[in-house]
């Protein structure tokens, strides 16, 4: 048993647990987007950021990947953490203003659409990678992958060809938090 504190409350967990695991066990709220119990943590959305004092320094880390250590002090609602989360909500809302779960997220942070609009393809995909990871880790095939990089990064199938590995199980459609997979699926799935 490893004991440490979250927001001053003494908590504990087993070796191999993350801060998020322990927080959820104790009913402490931390927002997430790219996290899913059935898959390995990925660390893309950064929404689950918390501030950790490990005795040497205090820094912002992501709770879904940070392994718990004896005696660390975790704070889930500091000004630095709030600033990171607010900006993520703002940026996501401006990228995909129509997606219901993004609207909900933005609302919880009191964020409204800014004057900056996304240009180019209208898609509510925010590259959380749940579809790709579900395909690989849960279904066990590699019909989906990331393509390109930076602002051009996209969810696609290997070599941009409709995948022959796809079994049309629909898991990707099911896990997609924004519904963007509805648009992508016909382009990547097997015929």
């Amino acid at each position: 048993m490893i004991t440490f504190s979250i927001n001053g409350q003494e908590v504990g967990g087993e070796e191999g647990w993350t801060v998020l695991d322990v927080a959820r066990w104790h009913g402490i709220e931390i927002p997430t987007l790219c996290h899913h119990e059935a898959m390995e943590p990925f660390g893309a959305c950064r929404l689950c950021a918390v501030e950790v004092d490990d005795g040497r320094r205090t820094r912002v880390v992501i709770s879904c990947m940070y392994p718990i250590r004896e005696g660390i002090k975790v704070q889930t609602e500091t000004p630095r953490v709030a600033n990171v989360r607010r900006w993520i909500a703002q940026l996501l809302l401006d990228e995909s203003p129509q997606a219901p779960n993004i609207q909900e997220l933005a609302k919880s942070f009191g964020v409204t659409p800014s004057r900056f609009k996304k240009t180019g393809v209208e898609s509510a995909c925010h590259l959380c990678g749940l579809c790709i990871r579900a395909c690989q880790e849960v279904v066990g095939v590699q019909a989906l992958t990331f393509g390109n990089r930076g602002v051009l990064k996209e969810v696609t199938s290997p070599y941009h060809r409709r995948s022959q590995d796809c079994i049309r199980c629909g898991t990707c459609l099911y896990v997609c938090p924004t519904g963007a997979m509805e648009q992508i699926f016909p382009l990547v799935s097997s015929e």
Binding site: W87, I88, L91, R149, G150, V151, K153
Partner: peptide
């Protein structure tokens, strides 16, 4: 840096773009 960002995490992918805007 926008050109070279891998695009995995949101603060870097979208945050840098907004800073540029």
């Amino acid at each position: 840096l926008i050109d070279e960002s891998c695009g995995k995490c949101i603060p870097c992918r979208l945050g840098l773009k907004r800073m540029r805007e």
